[in-house]
Every structure is written in C-alpha cells, then in structure tokens.
Design a binder for these strands. Sequence first.
DNA 1: CGACGGTCGGACAACGTTGTCATACTCTCT
DNA 2: AGAGAGTATGACAACGTTGTCCGACCGTCG
Lengths: 329, 329
Amino acid sequence: MVDVARLAGVSLKTVSRVVNGEPHVQRAMADRVLAAVAELGFQRNHMASALRAGRASATIGLIIEELANPFYSTIAHVTAEMARDRDTLLLSASSEEDPVREEQLLRDLCSRRVDGLLVVPAGCDHSFLNSQVEMGIPVVFLDRPGTNIDADAVLLDNRGGARSGVRRLVADGHRRIGVLLDSVDVHTMRERLAGAQDALADAGIGYDGALVRDGVRDPATAAAAVADMLTQPNPPTAFLALNNRITVGAVQELWQRGSDAALVGFDDFELSHLMPRPLTVIGYDTRELARRAAQLLFARIDGDRSRPRTVVLPTELVERGLTAGRLPR
Amino acid sequence: MVDVARLAGVSLKTVSRVVNGEPHVQRAMADRVLAAVAELGFQRNHMASALRAGRASATIGLIIEELANPFYSTIAHVTAEMARDRDTLLLSASSEEDPVREEQLLRDLCSRRVDGLLVVPAGCDHSFLNSQVEMGIPVVFLDRPGTNIDADAVLLDNRGGARSGVRRLVADGHRRIGVLLDSVDVHTMRERLAGAQDALADAGIGYDGALVRDGVRDPATAAAAVADMLTQPNPPTAFLALNNRITVGAVQELWQRGSDAALVGFDDFELSHLMPRPLTVIGYDTRELARRAAQLLFARIDGDRSRPRTVVLPTELVERGLTAGRLPR
DNA sequence: CGACGGTCGGACAACGTTGTCATACTCTCT
DNA sequence: AGAGAGTATGACAACGTTGTCCGACCGTCG
C-alpha cells in the first residue's frame, strides 16, 4: 500500500479510501490510485484489515467427522453456500472422531478468530469452548449435542426414526430383528439403538443381546456380521442397519446370499433406490439440518443473545421396493 | 495480551515468550504467566501473529466445483489431511462452474494471504493469477489445466481412458455407440469425447453426430437422452457416459426399460458394483490425484522454484458384471 | 575487586491496514 | 466580505503480536 501511495503520489489513507470505495475522493485522484494498484498488482491484506478495523474475519469454522463422507460433505456444501451469501468463507477440518484432535482444531480455529463455529462433536467435554463463547465466538452443534456447554444444537429425531423403522418390521411380522451399529460411544448410535428397543418394548418383544452387534465400522464388517448372524441357530428374519455404511454392507451380503431377510437402514443415500434388493430407509433432510444450523449460527453472529435452542428435525420412513426407483434430485 | 501481562506483572514480550515456548524465561515467571493466561482465557491471535512475524497464514485455499460431489469432497478430504500434517487448515469454496465466481473466490483467498492455492478451474482465463504467483502464492491445478498461466497441474488421462472404454465396446462388436456428455465447454469432457472418437477412428467407424448428446447435466437428463436415443431409428447398441452422474441416469433408464444395451461409464463411484445391471467403468485414483497435487503445492510453498510440471495419472478400465461385486475399501 | 559471560526481562518499532481528527480548500448565502 | 457548510486530503495512532536490541542481574574466575 505504501508503494501504491508513492506511485500515485498520494497518502496511505487515500489509497485505503479508494480501495474500500469510500466517498470523498476526487475522480482524477481515484483513477491515479487505481492505475497504481493495477500496475503493482496490489491486493489489500485481509488479515491486517480485519485486525485494524476490529472487524470479523469473514470466516466460519466447521468441524465434522470426515469430509469425504457424503453426509458431512453435504453439510459442508450447504454451510459454505450460506456463508458465501455473507461474503464469508468456510474453514473446514475433520476430527476423525478423535476428541483430542477435535479440541486442537477448535482451539486453532478460535485463535484464527473465526466469526463462529459449526461443530459435529466427537469429544465428550466441550467446556473449554465456554470461554470462547463468552468472548464472542458463537458455537452451534450439529447432529449431536455438545457436552458441558449450553449452546445451540440442531439434531435429528434419531430415536423416533429408529423406532418407526422397527415398528414397521414388527408390523410385517418380524420378531427376531438384528441390529447393527457402529459404536455405542457415539451419541447418535445410542439414540438409534434406544429407539429400536422402544419399538421392541412397545411390541412386547424381549431384548436379546445376541441380536445386537456393536463395532460395525464399515461395509465389510457389516457384511461379516450379517453372515455370522444368519448362520447362528434361530437367526434374525430382519435387520436394522444404524447408518448408511452398515446398510451398504448388509445389502451386499443379503443380496449375494439370496437371503430374503428384510432390511431397514438408517440414513438415506444417493443411490439407495438403485440397490439390487428392496431397501427401506429412515431418511431425513441433511440439507435442512445444515441450513438450520447455519441460520442459527449467523443469527448469533449478528448479535442474537437469546437462550440457546435445540432444534430436532423429523425423520421419515421411506419404503421402497425394487421397482420404485426414482431419479435423484 | 496486555491484560495477561498486567495480571502476571510482566511485560508484553515475556508473555509472548511464554506463549510461544521460547527459552530464557524463569520457571516461576512462566508459571505466573501461564496462570494469568488460564485465568483470562487468553488465546493468541493467529492473524496478528502472522502479520507481525511475516509468517505464513498456515492456510491453503481450495477451489472446486461443488463440495457435495463425492469426487470433490474426496479431494477436499485428502488435501485437508495432508495440510493437517503441516498444521495448516483448508479454506474451501465451490465455484459452481461459474468463472466469475471462481475469480472472486480466488481473489478473496489471495487477499487472505493463503500459503497456496489448489484449483479445479472453471474459468477460461487465469492470467490474473500470474501476479499472485510472482508474489509468492503458488497455484496447482487439479483435474483440469489452468489457462494463460504457467503452473503445475495434476490431470487424469481422460483421452486415453475414454479411448480404452470405447475400444472395449468395439471389441465386443458394437458399432453404434451413443456418447453422453455434460458440456464441451468443460476441458475434461472435450478430452473424453476426443478419446472416444480416437477409438472409433482406430476401428474405422465413421462419426455420426446423432450419436453424441451434449448438455447432459444430471441423471434425469441422462435418462431422457438414453430413452430418446433408443427410440430413434437405428438406435445405439451401447452407451458411453462421460461422467458418473450421467452413468447413474443411464443405468437407471436401461435397467427400467430392460434394455440390453452395453454401458461404459467414466468415473468409478462408491456403489458402482451394486448397480442393478452390469456396469463397466473407467476408474482412476481420486485420492492419488489429490495427494500428488497437494505434494506439488507443498513443495512450492517450501521454496521449490523448478519449472512447472504437468502430471498425468492413468485410468483403468474396470470391467464388472452383476456378480462381480466387491466391497468398497 | 573488577571483568566477564550467561541469563532474564523490558522498551520500542514494525507488520499492513483503517478510524479519528485536523487542515485546506471551495461554495453559497446573507 | 465574512460566516457557515461541505468536500477533499493527509498525519497519526492504533489493532495484537513479535523481532531487535539494550540493560540488569547473577555467579564465577583471575
């Protein structure tokens, strides 16, 4: 900027005024400045500008589990779009479900003075964020609530969704329903499992530990679990897969064995209607989830000081057969 | 920091030393400072720090077409992971294939003094980036080369891939092959179309404009195009879909009609092995694409001043039938 | 006892920008 | 002509941090 000022023969402040489109600069002088800017390829330093003006950094931070997962990348995309409408960019990072890493990333984002944080929490204690919130960096939790912190959250009706899925299976006459889940350490998994158990209890079906498989982290494990359960005595006649990766593995295994066991999966996914066997899923609107969270965050950034809210979005049982294919979007 | 210094009864510089772990501070004094830091919840301002120290911002910018698309989200994920190994965060934005928006975003990223840029270009002129490169912000193009700029690029062998796909169809006896593409405005599409025509020319099959459909932007359009082409006189006996969204639409339409037309799709995708009809795809390693680009960028950031390189990664024809399902990963 | 080397702490300027205020000039109106 | 209002420009400090340099203090050795 000093160079531009020198080349145009004006003061620093005049350059600043021209660059920021402030009024009260003569046309001729502005042109001289713009010419100098063009010649030197000057570009305002956004960091210095925000520092001096005490302005927001026009950045929001997003912590998710893994960017490559379609669920999270949809969230990232929607929030980035909404941010763009406010000339704000998205700084995103994956926690990989590691609480330590999550805290590191969150601290890093805070030290960069992001305007706000959108977090799909992995950790079990977010109390260290309280001081940041007090100091003006609002936080909104997504998909799972934060712990030891009173902040906004936008969640899904995981319990209700799982309950309606199992209720459907029970209505179809199933009494032995295998449940496959990632890990009870994850809040959403606990909720979904509880919902499944609600439905079983509603139907007066007792709990059978042999029908619940924990630690199913990927499609291959899911396939193996299905195979194993089907070869036990008194096997399940239906399965509930508690996330989309598990569903994919289960679909594959059931299809390859030619098994006619029923399957309900939590999470819809892009090609679910093209799977090689009928697949009923518990769906929800991922974009709406992200949209609501971003709206809440921006309201906080704009000064909303009302009490933290928790929004729970509904799920929907999408019953589909082989021929019910519809094109996405 | 002023408050911390006052509370600890030391000077600013001493606080700075403690916060940055510099040596030559007595244990007792350091403890006093740390206590004050904890009490006040002080967190170093990364922007001011980078500004003063002339240090890098520990941020890289990524411009892609659309974050919600699995291809791009994989790229984002891999680059974010590699960045994290350098304590660098990823500032990502979607161009939505809009050259104007792309330029705005790139300028914004430059004004934030990112350490480097990773770009899947949408625009047709990137000469405005030349001055930024000169001023020390390296740029690496991904998937498509930049225009009017001499910069690194990591590309796929689009032409060779399409050629091998069509060669396969020709070897199976097909002579009328329908080609579906997004837009000839996109570099990768032009290359893939050229590859298809190479293979046809190799086989001595003349060009028939009626067999090429442009402007197929989504699955629904692809399905409609397939339906239309199949109801023309002398219809194609095989299709080449030049990206994964087109492939999905084509799969769906062929399957619903019970058509036995062959189908080869460019781009592999997660559930391609579970599609309801045999699907041969032209695959490649998206993660490797991102990895190589990030490696190049970090080398530039670390001072590599050698001549810009263009890396072309191979594609692979993945021939799959209904029963050849394999689990992903 | 004086000099010396090492350790520790602080004053000050600077990074690139903008808010505040002061100044100089130009109109217009009485 | 002089007051008053508005416009155009610049000098300077400040944002939060750190690099540079200088000085104070300590112990040790000749």
